[in-house]
Design a protein around this nucleic acid. Structure first.
Lengths: 345, 345
DNA sequence: AATAAAATTACAATCGGTTGCATTTTAAAA
DNA sequence: TTTTAAAATGCAACCGATTGTAATTTTATT
């Protein structure tokens, strides 16, 4: 004998008014008098009424739900972005539906379809490792469902994106390594088709060039960049295989850099004396490894907040996000022991 | 001119049959002939039909959505649990709505209400740091919406929980410290009202007792256990303030333990020689700090999978989870350098 | 070919909230 | 008191899928 669900019809009957008035009263419609509104509100509370979102969504064609597609939940960076998004969304009365592609394009396509069928009001996405064709996102654009990319973005005229200046950050941190005396800096990074890695690579190369250092392909180590394959030794091994040994390494992920550092240390390399290391993200791990890791502070929580706020404001027609091409957040270098060949500053 | 949404009525008109047949055809109802079904399916695909979930939910009183309430997304442990949940849920056609309490009971209450109003089919929750009264969850129980707790659980006759044996794990790791020669072991942990911390505390005390060591309140350091307050030095300071200095520490969170280790090392303490350290969770950080941290492997991803599977099977009436009181997952100790006073094994 | 049985398909009500427009009530003006 | 305007409320259709029951068609049986 489950307690029956209360509807506006029940409230209407109770107060002997029409359901339409109840509906308007509950939504604070101006055509309803103060007095009636109060009666309705009170009765609704007393009877334990809760609005049926489906009936409402069915009528209004809105869900107050935002879909988020990310590559994986269990990454410090992603979890932090999500935390920021969730905060803003929940403050604004939106629910978040989150799904992970696990770096797999097939799954990303499936997720996009699920979101589409769930009729989310908007979508925030960060692409999987090797997604190139984004036609699975076209459905949103066609149906005018706002779509926004963050971090791993795709430049599309109908999709704003929220990013940091990866090029500049990479340029800056590479320059720092050079300034510390590095002459041969390897770059460990991910799939160069992804904007984040491509931009960092360009920044890195430009810094070398501007400082009279020559870039050769030998210096580029492409890696899967997965924090979760556990102690990854491949990259470290590849570094060690280079002859003569590099004296600097710019690794585009702190967790990954931490694993490399461990392997290098095990191989008897001294950091930063033999090789100076710089990471990316300002993962908490960067402050815990020995020596502490020089890195780029990536405002992940803020990125989540900004992305969510931008999308929600657009949904509410507060602002038109389609006027925006991209939002670039501030990032800054954090210099720590792992790169200080010249000794502490 | 946004393309109009296709409904079963459109398909019905196109094929000159009734909407009822279309509905049944799409859901593979046995009363519809093979031939008609095929026609319906093909036309639906051709016309770009997508089912309207609200209309369906309104009718069926189901949402295929599961609510998850956690304390915070940006915690390694939580993110990993969520990853496991998301995997299982998405495989089974369920969406996950995730909201974080940020360790705040007020927000947890608000989240529970949102979930309730969103009419989730079921809920998985891990309690906030100091939630004691769980009456905000009673609505689910009253409305027979299955509710399951994981990790930070609350024993309630209508709510199964998924946990590890915190008592045993703590007993084991404390015994290990003792076996390594520790005579004075401090315990750094969280709010003892939370089962996870209470159970670990009991296991720790029992291990001391069984080995003839005396427990005194001086050895207990209660801390907020937040990985995100950044370099937390309080606990480390408190340890250093104890006279004579302890020779062992069991800290119930790896990230937290890592921060403590850093502070202790800065204070000139040698680990494990002066103080042996043990953590909890098997956070990746445990394998990166120096020395590597002895810890308990907490099967977080598996916990997420198990919790989600249990709830979904219940929703699908495959199994009746209400027959289960709790599911205890295996955990095991991982011995690493931070606790090996007697040298590597 | 006639009839019964089985297999398909259609009708119409339902789920609960929303909203354009019509109607009633109340207040203000004449 | 009557007229008119403004404010408040009600009517009824609609959103799209589902389903019990009735109606129709097909197939099998004699």
């Amino acid at each position: 004998m489950k307690s029956k669900e209360i509807t506006i019809y029940d409230i209407a009957k109770e107060l002997d008014i029409s359901p339409a008035t109840v509906s308007r009263g509950l939504r604070d419609h101006p055509a309803i008098s103060r007095k009636t509104k109060k009666k309705i509100m009170d009765t609704a509370r007393a009877m334990g009424y809760r609005s049926n979102t489906f009936a409402s969504s069915l009528r209004l064609k809105r869900t107050n739900t935002i879909g988020v597609i990310i590559h994986r939940l269990d990454s410090y960076f992603v979890a932090t972005v999500l935390a920021g998004m969730e905060k803003v969304a929940s403050e604004s009365g939106y629910n978040l539906i989150i799904s992970q592609s696990l770096e797999n394009t097939e799954k990303e396509i499936a997720n996009a379809n699920t979101m589409f069928n769930s009729r989310v009001d908007g979508v925030m996405a960060s692409l999987a490792y090797d997604t190139e064709d984004i036609s699975h996102f076209e459905v949103f654009i066609e149906k005018k469902i706002p779509l926004l990319f963050f971090d791993r973005v795709y430049k599309h005229k109908d999709c704003p994106n929220v990013v940091i200046d990866n090029y500049k950050a990479a340029y800056e941190i590479t320059s720092h390594l050079i300034e510390q005396g590095c002459k041969k800096i390897v770059h460990v990074t991910g799939n160069l088709k992804r904007n984040v890695y491509a931009d960092r690579f360009e920044g890195y190369k430009k810094a070398l060039e501007d400082n009279g250092l020559k870039y050769t392909d030998e210096l580029l180590i492409i890696n899967y960049m997965d924090e979760h394959i556990g102690p990854n030794v491949d990259a470290a091994k590849q570094i060690l295989a280079i002859n003569p040994l590099p004296d600097g390494a710019f690794i585009t992920n702190d967790a990954f850099a931490a694993y490399c550092m461990r392997e290098l240390k095990l191989a008897g390399i001294s950091i930063p004396k033999d090789i100076a290391i710089a990471g990316f993200n300002n993962d908490p791990i960067s402050g815990l490894v020995d020596p502490n890791l020089t890195t780029i502070n990536y405002p992940s929580y803020e990125m989540g907040e900004v992305a969510a706020r931008t999308l929600i404001n657009h949904l509410r027609e507060v602002t038109d996000m389609m006027l925006t091409e991209s939002i670039v957040l501030k990032s800054e270098m954090i210099i720590r022991g792992s790169s200080l060949k010249k000794g502490a500053q």
